[in-house]
Amino acid sequence: MRAQFVLSEIGVGLRRNLTMTFAVIVSVALSLALAGGSLLAREQVNTMKGYWYDKVQVSIYLCNKNDASSDPNCAKGAVTEPQKKKIKNELDEMNVVDKVYYESSDAAYKHYKKQFKDSPLADSLTPDQMQESYRVKLNDPTKYQVLQTAFSGREGVQEVQDQRSLLENLFNLLNGMNIAALCVMALMLVVALLLIVNTVRVSAFSRRRETGIMRLVGASSFYIQMPFILEAAIAGLIGAGLACVLLLGAKYFLIDSWLAEKIVLINFIGWDAVIKVLPFVVAVGVLMPAVAAFFTLRKYLRV
């Protein structure tokens, strides 16, 4: 295979179809940016869920010695061993309860550190400031009230918290946006595919003389098809590059410079999450047009 020959063919092809190539690049860029964005939104949800979210529904936070001064529920000081035992026994006997986990303050600190590793909040706490807690998995998630009435206000208990009510709305919103983004992405992807198919078809048609002669003199179909496939892949690669720029730009301008300034308490996805998505974006951006071109050529460039 003569690289120079193939390269010059590609150059000619891309220039001949400049408007179509441009359309392919833009549609690939947009659909991939949306795809990457929706992956990142999912990542964002996972980041916010923390360690317990998918395992339990209710958290019973126990008082620690620091709370005694700040929180009226804990006026009597830190929770004692007998209090803890009693709570545990009662939880075990309740039939709405499926499973009970105990989280020590050390474990709580570890989970916290992990979740907020990218945030300045991570360094502001020490292990002994963390609360011990019972994390309860219910048979029926809607039965949160039962635990609320049983344990809130009890000595040693700071708060009974329905984990879900806290984040559920936000997650619903994010999921809704995610689904919308995926729908738009699917449409853009269809547009991109149709554009690629059409571009390749026009390209094959405008070069039918060359390809006809190539066939006659016995060029392999690989050799005949390669310029077309590379053409599509290069357009896809440029589109994917633009999509990457869009994603990085969104992280920098939208999240870091804007959202993170306004909302301090939410832990946003870090650069590592964004960078992890990029190879996927590039791979899809190159492979999808190449495969689409390959199948188009099977139809329009018979051996």
Binding site: G212, I213, R215, L216, G218, V303
Partner: peptide, 21 residues
């Protein structure tokens, strides 16, 4: 199919309309 090009390399073809680039 993939051996057809190999076979065609041993043939020459000429047409009425020349088929030049």
């Amino acid at each position: 199919n993939w051996k057809v090009p190999q076979m065609r390399r041993q043939l020459g073809t000429v047409f009425q309309d020349f088929r030049l680039l």
